Amino acid sequence: MFYWILKYLVVGPVLKGIFRPWIAGAQNVPKQGAAILASNHLSVMDSVFLPLVLERPMSFLAKSEYFTGKGLKGWATKWFMKGTGQIAIDRSGGSASEGALNAALQVIGRGDLLGIYPEGTRSPDGRLYKGRTGIARMALVAKVPVIPVVMVDTDTMLPIGSSRPRIMRIGMVLGEPLDFSRYEGFEDDRFVLRSVTDEIMVALQRLGGQEYVDDYATKHRRRAEENGAQKASAFS
């Protein structure tokens, strides 16, 4: 109920009126039944706008830090994330990865839509980075199609490090569902999982035309920060 109140009575009308989001390929989302929506990730607002323009409710797996903030801002963020159907996950790996899988399977088991960012984090520079194989395992275990989704201009609307969005139109493009039923029974084969994940990333790259980087976004960001720190120390 809270989800519907936010989407149709509170947040939804305001955001739609300000940013006038557009969507192409909405017909590729099934009218019923579970599916995974695999999206590129450009802005913290991606998890807000995609559910906003779809007729069906959906949930995104979101990093647990969004649910543990302190003070008024932390409370508001937690309230908003829960109200819009976001699910907190621990991204530290190991048993935490199993927890993320189980949370995803609960959503899919209800026959709902699940949103995942295969890159694992926001792109640091607008390029498309190598996908992590968790999405492949979820798709194979749950036996559901994967729908590629490209967010358009959300990074321009709210760049990394900015807290005030620009007033402009943003959009979403949804591709045709990807069927991986040919890999049934191979959800624990790491080579199959990498192949499935790469196929998803190729679909995203073709759909959105982003430059592809064969490296993980987190590693790229870490190296950039280390290089920046080294340069700063050299001039200090």
Rank of each mutant, 00 (worst) to 15 (best):
A139Q: 00
I108D: 11
L114F: 07
Q86V: 04
G94V: 08
P57C: 06
S162F: 06
Q27L: 01
R20S: 14
I200N: 04
V144A: 05
R122T: 02
S95Q: 15
D188H: 14
N40L: 00
S123Y: 03
F80C: 11
G185V: 11
K219N: 14
I116T: 01
V10M: 12
S233W: 15
L72M: 11
I108R: 08
I135T: 04
G126I: 07
D214R: 00
A35D: 02
I18M: 10
G120S: 01
K231V: 12
M1I: 12
R182I: 12
S43M: 07
G12I: 04
E199W: 02
D189H: 06
R182Q: 15
S233C: 11
L114K: 04
Q106G: 14
M151S: 10
V150S: 07
T133Q: 08
T68W: 02
Q230M: 12
R56T: 06
G209Y: 06
F60H: 02
I116Q: 03
T84Y: 12
S59N: 04
A34L: 00
V152G: 09
Y129W: 00
T156G: 14
V144Q: 02
I167H: 05
T197I: 04
R20Q: 15
Y183C: 10
V144C: 07
S43Y: 01
G17R: 09
G115C: 09
T218I: 14
M81A: 15
R122Y: 00
K73H: 07
L193S: 06
D198V: 10
I135V: 06
T133I: 13
R137F: 08
